[in-house]
Write a protein that binds this DNA or RNA. Structure first.
Lengths: 252, 252
DNA sequence: ATTTTTCTGGTCATCTTGACCATAATGGCA
DNA sequence: TGCCATTATGGTCAAGATGACCAGAAAAAT
């Protein structure tokens, strides 16, 4: 019979790592946690935090461990999900390395703890990190770009935006997260109507908070719902923005 | 200094595989391509097709190769996307194996070609394959379940449903895909309004097709658009169905 | 010719959204 | 104290999308 032979070498030297894309919203920009590499390759360059998966741990487990090691923070309080895997030959000059990328979302964290593996960790605006001059190591620019798109998309139909807010938070805090990550401004009134009417999204604490200026805002906790239905779509605004910005008036 | 040592063994015996979840719509059910295992472990059991990633190929590349080997079909004409990775220790009794799962969608394919690695490949209804009595090998039941959810979700906001239809196809053909994968029935008139008014979804050929019964249906080609905006949400129907089906009348 | 079947287009009430206006509640400042 | 800037919150209104439903069109079967 025409039985084609199986691959001659099913097993060959390969390493498996996890890389973390840890996002937070600082000031008015989305930030990602990067580390300055202390060894070759890309010595002195910037990269996503990550490390080798150990022989006895699962992928999620390894991601949680790295998260703890790099940030000193309890991973259970952050949103953590697998992003996707990257394994192009040559992506790591040391040999064949498959990496499983994870996406972590959290409130503005205290500056990464020194005295650990994260000694040279720092927050960088995503916009800068993706810039041509920055030059992230390995294929981390690709991973970061994929992570941004995932985060933007997830804000639409889930409630993960609350992961960026320390509780209790105001509707404005939450809206700020959307505005920063989507890069557009949202109508305060319409946004409020949407999130407060979505069952399980926000849970009022009854308290209020007085900011620097303006009327005090009601405080909320996360309500426990994971999905938002109907979704809060950014596509509409984007489409409108595209039409409005278009240099061709009334195209066919 | 409190400098925790790096992992003692960054590299250990590990294999990387790709597994394929190949879906098609046959008759009135979603089907998945499975293979009967010809060797240990799980000899004689059913599993998702897949194989080892070779030293010199990327992950997508490996998935395309396996797809070609298992189905004899040109992968470029199918929709193929990475699903996610699975690497729990012990998921493969032979050792540490990380698998990258891919999702493939295609029209009702000619029965898998014999005389290749796919000699023992067969189509199985997804419902059966996920049943307790079926007992998919490894953690393939988990992978399959994740793939089903991904497919259901993607029908909502993309045009991938057309991947299941051989061109040219009718609106009813397309609706049938949605109904089978979502497991609900859709109003023909409303569905037509939706898909025909979404720019770039359908492109009329001008031809018609006369089926066994009823008025001839207009034929279409895929229009090239990848996303559908606004999305066609199943959640609404599901929520309504849940309310209607609920055994607790008028719950809080 | 009539029935059956499916395709196709239309109506209508309802829901959601975006744009916009108005008022409330605070601090800052003259 | 009394106004003003600022933010929060609530409401209106028109446009758009959706679900339920009706009705005619076009074929095969009887």
């Amino acid at each position: 019979m025409t039985h084609s032979a199986p691959p001659a070498v099913p097993r060959f030297p390969v390493s498996v790592t996890v890389d973390l894309v840890i996002f937070t919203v600082r000031d008015d920009a989305l930030h990602v946690l990067l580390v300055e590499r202390g060894k070759q390759p890309f010595l002195g360059g910037s990269a996503l935090p990550g490390g080798y998966v150990r022989p006895d741990e699962g992928l999620d487990e390894a991601a949680l461990r790295e998260l703890r090691e790099e940030t000193g923070l309890d991973g259970n309080r952050l949103h953590l999900e697998q992003l996707r895997s990257y394994g192009t030959p040559g992506r790591d000059p040391r040999g064949r390395v498959i990496t499983v990328a994870y996406l972590a979302l959290g409130p503005d964290l205290p500056v990464p703890v020194a005295g650990t593996d994260a000694a040279h960790a720092f927050w960088a605006p995503v916009e800068d990190a993706l810039g041509a001059g920055f030059g992230l190591s390995f294929d981390h620019a690709t991973i970061l770009a994929d992570a941004v798109e995932r985060a933007r998309s997830k804000l639409e139909y889930t409630t993960v935006a609350t992961s960026f807010c320390r509780e209790p938070f105001t509707v404005s805090d939450l809206r700020h997260v959307y505005e920063v990550i989507w890069g557009i401004s949202l109508d305060p009134s319409n946004f409020r109507r949407k999130v407060t009417k979505t069952a399980g999204f926000l849970e009022p604490t009854g308290e209020r908070r007085t900011a620097e200026a303006g009327r005090p805002a009601a405080l909320y906790r996360f309500g426990g719902a994971e999905v938002m239905y109907p979704p809060l779509l950014r596509s509409g605004d984007i489409a409108r923005k595209a039409r409005g910005t278009g240099s061709e008036p009334g195209g066919g």
